[in-house]
Amino acid sequence: MGVISKLLGIVLVVGGGIMFFLGSSDQNMNIIYYFLGLTIMAMGFSLLTAGGKKEEKPNPPTVTEIACDNPECTFKEIRDFQKGDFILKSLETKCPKCQGSMTIQGVYMVREEEPVPTV
């Protein structure tokens, strides 16, 4: 429905524009063409701009970043957030690489980048 109404809107804007700018060969009918053209263009524009807001994207998932406490070990794991997770929480599970202790280093969301301003 959205695409059809947009297409119809474009057709009406273009049609109305042609009527408005080209008018009629009959000098007396010109004014009627102007009015009609304007009305049709207005209808087209309202169809193009109508349709309400864009569908909202759901928030990205929250993830938990776990890292090994051993400064020489580079083990890092990112998994889905689980209730009870918090930043700097010491975990009971051991590092699969060096068997050291592990801590939650981050609980976060990666949101969509805001458009960069051109000025």
Binding site: N59, G106, Y108, R111
Partner: peptide, 12 residues
């Protein structure tokens, strides 16, 4: 939105 919402990676 970022201040009251779940912490963003960029902030972290």
């Amino acid at each position: 939105a970022a201040a009251v919402g779940v912490m963003d990676k960029k902030i972290l």
